[in-house]
Design a binder for these strands. Sequence first.
DNA 1: AATAAATGAGTGACTATTCATTCAAATATA
DNA 2: TATATTTGAATGAATAGTCACTCATTTATT
Lengths: 194, 194
Amino acid sequence: MARAIDISKMERVRETAIEMIVEQGYGGASIAMIAHKAGVADGYLYRFYKGKQELVIDLLHVMVGAIVDQLEALLKNCNQISDVIRILTAGFFQMAEQQPTHIKFLDVLMHDYNFKIKEQQRTQIFNLCHKIKEIGMKTGEVSESMNEDDIYLLGVVLPIQFLNLRIKTFFSRKEWNLKDQEHIIMIILKSLKE
Amino acid sequence: MARAIDISKMERVRETAIEMIVEQGYGGASIAMIAHKAGVADGYLYRFYKGKQELVIDLLHVMVGAIVDQLEALLKNCNQISDVIRILTAGFFQMAEQQPTHIKFLDVLMHDYNFKIKEQQRTQIFNLCHKIKEIGMKTGEVSESMNEDDIYLLGVVLPIQFLNLRIKTFFSRKEWNLKDQEHIIMIILKSLKE
DNA sequence: AATAAATGAGTGACTATTCATTCAAATATA
DNA sequence: TATATTTGAATGAATAGTCACTCATTTATT
C-alpha cells in the first residue's frame, strides 16, 4: 500500500466550505478560497466530489439527515407530541450554541432557490410531519386544521428563524437562554393546538 | 438638451435583476446576464449605480420601505392590533399572488448574511414592533412576554416563510387561498396573546 | 521499488467594471 | 423653415482579475 488518506483533510474542507458559504453565499464562496483556508490544494476536493455543487448538496444532505434521523427515532416510541417538539427545539438551540455556523448554513441554503433538498429526504420529512399530525390528533395536541407544511413551518422553520434573528442581532438582542427556548416551545405547542 | 432618458430601461433592469437573483442567487446572477435579459448594454447600470451591490441594496431598500411605510400609516390611527396583523398578512398574500418573484426576493435576501437591511430601516422596523407591543398590551392582544423580535418573527417572518414554502411546493401543495390566510392570521394573533 | 495520496500550474470561460465612441434629439442660428 | 451645433443617453469592446475544474507531476508511505 501507499500513503494513507488523511481523513482530517476532507473534514477540514467540509467545515471550511460551510463557513465560507455562510459568509459569502454559495456563489461568492470559491473553491480556491475554501481550499486555501482549509490548507489544502486547489484540486483536492475533486478526488471526493465531482464539483462544488455536489459538495454543498452533500453537506446539506448530511446535516438535514442527522436531524431527520433523530426525529424518526423519537417518533418510533412516543405517544405525546409535546415531548417531540421539546426535544427538536432543544436540539436547534443546542446547535445554535455549539455550532452557530451550522444553523446559519441551514438558514442560508434553505432559502436558496438553487438548493432543493433531495426528494427522498423531503418525503421523509413529510412523513414525519404526517405522523406528528396523526399522533397529535389522537392526543388532542394537534388541530385537524394543521397541514403537514404548517407543522414543518412551526416545528422547524420557526425555531431556526428565531435563532438566526438572534445570531444576526437583527434587533439589539444577541443572546438567548432557556427562557427563550421555553417561550418558543410554548408558541409552537399552542399554535399546533389551534 | 439631448436625447431624453428612457425611464422604462432602468425599471426593466431592476425587475430583471430581481428575477435573476431569485433564480441564481446574488453571486450567481451576473451583470452581463441581467443586462442581456433586460435588453440593455452591459455598462448601462453604472450610469445609475456604483455597482452590482449598490443596485441590490437599493432594490431591497425600496421593497422593504414600501411595507414599512404602509405599516407606519396603519399604526398612526389604530387601537387594535388584530387589524394591523390582518392587513399586513393580507399584504404579503397579495404580494405572493401578484408578484411572487418579489416575495421570493425578500426571502432570498433576508437570509443572505451579506445583505443586512440599512440600519435606519431596521430601527424603523424595531420601533414599529415596539409600538405594536405597546398598543397590544393595552388591549390585551399582546402578552408582556413578547419581545420586539418575537413580534417581527410572528408578524413578518412567519407569513413570508409560509408563502415561500407553498411557492416552492416544499410539500405537495402549490396553491393557497383565503382560508390559509385566515389560518395564518389566527396563528399569529393567538401566539402574540400567549 | 511500488503505489496511491496530494499537489498546484495551467485551462478557457466568465466576472465586474470602465470609458472612448456613437448618434438621436434638443437648441441655436440663419 | 432649414441647417448647423451641441448635448448626454446609451453602447459594447477592452481590461484585469477570478472562476470551476483538469491532470501531469511530486511526495510520502509501505
